[in-house]
Amino acid sequence: MDEVHRTGKEKLGIVGKSVFMSIPNLDIVSRFPTDYMHAVLLGVMKQLWSLWVDSENHKENFSVGLRLTEIEERFLSFRPPSSFPRFPKPLTEYKQFKANEWEGILLHYIFPMMYGILPREYLNHVMLLSFTIFQLLQPDLRDINLCGRRLEHFGKQFQVLYGHQNMTYNVHLSAQQLIKAVHNFGTLYNFSLFPFEAGNGMLLGFRSGSNKPVVQLEQKFILYKLCMFTKVPKRLPIEKWIKELWANKTSGAENKQQYSLLAILCEYDDDVNTRIRTTSKTSS
């Protein structure tokens, strides 16, 4: 990191010093755990799939692009239980896959999809990652040191199989730093960003236009909190509306109604009214 800061040139995925390094007595390596969702699923697993199927790698031993139709037929034939968040969809859309789709591929689908198609040494390599991550997701963690050695071996073999040029920062995080985070914080789901991604989706749903998006998020988030947690006096005209508001998506006309009713709600909470006015002035 010091070298990158001094030369100004990116190296192994590092682009510069973090501002958190200026905080005294803060070890940013151990205090900021590697996120399994971004490093492993959206990082390493997505990168591996790109290497396997992209046409630019058609001369490589690991290329399976010519058999993508066969792989997709296998994938779409799977019938996962209802507990799975998403069902298999065409692999041609893999660049738009969400993290939980890559999780399903890594932990459940990868072996039956690629068996007999991906060369054995490459399949064994990705299965080493799959098996280790599955163990690290269990609530009763066992053999953490063994999992660490497996991830380290995965990282070393990655360079042998795919070349130094494909040794990305996510590979380093997954092979070296992930196990340290497990030692400090426990099973991977203890510090996964999956729950926060769901919150991001909710916030994005509060935006209905390009005009003052921050104010839109502020007002609708406050409205959401009021609707969900404020005790409304009985027989208030909007009591029924509050109960139904978040059950279904509202149309544009109903959105306008929300803003008019927001004024009524604010009469019951002066602090909310003050915050809305302050935010509007700041954004302007």
Rank of each mutant, 00 (worst) to 15 (best):
W102H: 09
Y115T: 11
L118C: 06
I105T: 04
L106C: 04
W102V: 14
V126A: 02
R120K: 13
L118K: 05
I110L: 08
T132E: 09
M114N: 07
L123G: 05
P119A: 05
V126R: 07
T132H: 04
A99T: 09
I117M: 09
L107I: 14
M114V: 05
Y115W: 08
I117W: 01
M113D: 03
H125N: 01
Y122H: 14
Y109E: 05
I117D: 08
F111Q: 12
L129M: 09
L123S: 09
F131C: 15
W102T: 13
H125T: 00
L106A: 02
H108K: 14
L129S: 03
N124A: 06
I105N: 02
H108I: 13
E103L: 14
G104F: 14
W102M: 14
T132V: 06
Y115H: 13
H125L: 01
Y109M: 11
M114Q: 05
V126N: 06
P119T: 04
M113F: 03
I105L: 15
Y115M: 10
W102E: 10
Y115A: 13
T132F: 05
I117Y: 01
L123I: 07
P119H: 01
L107A: 03
A99Y: 01
T132R: 09
F131T: 15
I105E: 01
L118V: 13
Y115D: 13
F111V: 08
Y122L: 01
P112A: 02
L107T: 09
Y115S: 12
F131G: 13
E101G: 10
F131E: 15
N100P: 12
T132N: 07
S130D: 09
E101P: 11
W102A: 12
S130G: 06
I105H: 03
W102F: 15
I117T: 12
L107V: 08
P112H: 08
W102K: 14
V126M: 11
E103I: 11
